[in-house]
Amino acid sequence: MSEETMVLETVDTAPEEAAKEPSKGAPAPKNDIEKTSKKQKVVKVFVYIGLYTFLTLVAITVLFPFYWMLISSLKSLDEYNRTVPTLWPTQFVWSNYGAAFTGGLNLGRLFLNTVIVGVVSTLLSLVVTVLSAYAFARLEFRGKNLMFGAMLATMMIPGELFTISNYLTVSEFGWLNTFTALIVPFLVSVFYIYLLRQNFMQIPNELYLAAKVDGTSDLKYLWKVMIPLAAPTLISITILKMMGSWNSYIWPRLVANDDLHRLITVGLRDPSAFIYVDPATGMTTNLVNFPAQMAAVVLVTIPLLLVFMFFRKYIMRGVSRSGLKG
């Protein structure tokens, strides 16, 4: 008891001196305190200057590639290839964007393919995810926990293991070079089911019982109550899935690498896509048309950044729980 009061007393009286005078434990004379508090203030200012300088440097490093991408996409090839690079285009060459579309790459088609695959797979994936999450969160059936556990266990296995055999399956089904091959195999994400189930479980059961008493069907209840209440999670899932489709590379390159079904990321890395054609002679050169390439890169990046600006909260929430890119 006496110890407690002691502690309380020290905490009550000592903190200010102690905080200002770390090296000496004992209380110091008044003017010394004033001196050190001034010193402390100076130190504090320096710490803040240091912090902001550090953060600004990191921010510049993070932003620099974006800046370089934008200005490079607007330079003429001559300016891009100058010995001393310019930090701002002397003349904005918007025709690079046209060149990106008309070059070796059918950029319009690639964007269309990517949007088709992204939208269809996201919609179907939402339906499957909602139904499964609802079954796991609200319905009672034999083997529920076993089934859920088995699904979660598949999350541990790296995707490469699936890809090889899925390639064989897709060939067997005759799905090579179709949108089906791009959409169906990755329709079900156990992680999304898990995420949504957790959200559904938070919705009080009383609502469900009340709906039952009123004679509302399950699907109507799901549509009218569960989905609106779980909207934030559904938005997170939608955005992450869309971004995943937009950025996917390995699987699309493997199963659908023909002109009609190629996706944007696969097309970008086509080695023949951005060879510079001399407009005067019409001959191909051994130069890469970097400005046109950067223009294509800008067109791929901007939609992602726009989505991020509008849905920052949802993306960050979804990501911090998943730890998976895309």
């Binding site: 950025n247 890169v297 950044l305």
Partner: peptide, 8 residues
């Protein structure tokens, strides 16, 4: 994070 790793 919200970029395409091939593009960037």
């Amino acid at each position: 994070y919200v970029t395409n790793s091939i593009a960037i």
